[in-house]
Design a protein around this nucleic acid. Structure first.
Lengths: 228, 228
DNA sequence: ATCTCGACAATACACTGTATCGCACGGGGC
DNA sequence: GCCCCGTGCGATACAGTGTATTGTCGAGAT
């Protein structure tokens, strides 16, 4: 019934189960996402990058969703903490810029922020530091409302920027505005004459680069939320 | 070689290939998304809902991405057009509220807006109408910048709101704030004493409901973008 | 020395988007 | 009226996904 030793192959030489940790897992996942976008993050690939089988990850996560949560929280860990002594305007400007900055370095972050509850330790710590630095804002509820407004703006703006970048990258190496990225199409659309105002906007106005667009928008929002 | 007629089954009774159209396809897809979220939208299910094979859709689309683009554009078709004679403030308020409203009726829309270039006919028409109605704003470039700022705010705010709703819905029938939806967890987190400010915010301040939070944020942004 | 338990890999399943293939039908040339 | 061909469609196929289940090996306890 059992074969003789000679014909039986040796045990498959267990490759010394590499040590794992949540940190290593999300690091690998982030690397994958940086390289090829969020869609490239699959449990199998992450596990493979760590020299492990896919099911091994389920000791550290219950769900892929949880991996995404961890990735998002890792990004909150990368943000610059606000200095507690700055006035509220600089604090909020700093938060906004920092968010934008890391969303530019890790574009997949833009797909995640706002799309899930951020209750990880890093996100909470960041919120804590920000709120604490907003002591000169007046009431706490006013500070919360202002944070919400600014945050919403940043999330939306960053999202737009990132999709703009992607379009440009996909549609040639072009830099500049999405307008010329989708140039020919828009030409054809404008030729119908149905969008005169839009056409004027595209043809006659100069478009600021994204940095200044973001910054002036941010300044507008900050003016809007200023107490009094 | 060939079987006798008796044993050969009849032709599979071609079920009268149902007529199709892009419109019918996106309608079916939207229905699916309304019922069970964006993840429930698969080409197979959409096709099945229309009584067709999955591959049939590829006559109307090249890619699932394109289906999502069509769905998003369909939503732009549902928005209330701004009245051309209103002043810029009411125009922008209307745009913002309308976006928010349809994102509440079709929550999956919140997952789509800002995440892809919106160049469909409905989106363009909407932009056109909005820009045209913003004639009293001063220069066109200022109107563009202001629209961008307001739009970014709305996209971010709506995104936050929708994920909040989802958390509440998932975590019991609770209404109110995400805070008590994730209540026990936050209690445990606060018990560490690492987030005193956050704790004060949660415990000591009253949280406005989402409508007023959105509206006051919107008003802040509108104040911020006002010309002069 | 044996038993047991926990950690891991292997397998399996239902499902996804999409490329390919082949058939059946309808319309144009004789 | 018949044939033939193109075209539109379904069936099939494939690689890849998240995850449940099963199998197996090694170490620690008795």
């Amino acid at each position: 019934m059992s074969e003789l030793v000679w014909e039986r192959p040796e045990p498959p030489a267990r490759p010394a189960p590499s040590p794992l940790s949540r940190e290593a897992i999300v690091a690998a996942a982030c690397e994958l996402a940086d390289a090829d976008g969020l869609d490239a993050v699959s449990l199998r690939k992450v596990a493979a990058a760590l020299g492990a089988g896919p099911m091994r990850l389920y000791g550290y996560l219950d769900t892929k969703e949880e991996l995404l949560d961890l990735m998002a929280d890792a990004m909150y860990g990368e943000l610059d903490r606000p200095a507690p002594d700055d006035d509220w305007r600089t604090v909020m400007r700093g938060v906004a810029r920092s968010l934008r900055h890391t969303a530019h370095r890790h574009e997949w972050f833009a797909d995640l922020i706002g799309g899930r509850p951020n209750l990880g330790p890093n996100a909470l710590a960041y919120m804590e530091a920000t709120l604490a630095a907003l002591g000169d804002f007046g009431s706490l509820e006013a500070a919360m409302q202002a944070m919400h407004t600014v945050n919403s703006y940043v999330i939306g703006a960053v999202r737009d920027e990132v999709t703009g970048r992607r379009v440009e990258r996909a549609s040639g190496q072009d830099e500049g505005q999405w307008l010329q990225a989708s140039g020919p199409y828009l030409e054809r659309v404008f030729a119908t004459g149905r969008y005169p105002t839009l056409e004027r906007v595209v043809r006659e106005t100069v478009h600021p680069d994204r940095d200044t667009e973001f910054e002036t928008g941010l300044e507008q929002v900050l003016n809007g939320v200023a107490p009094r």
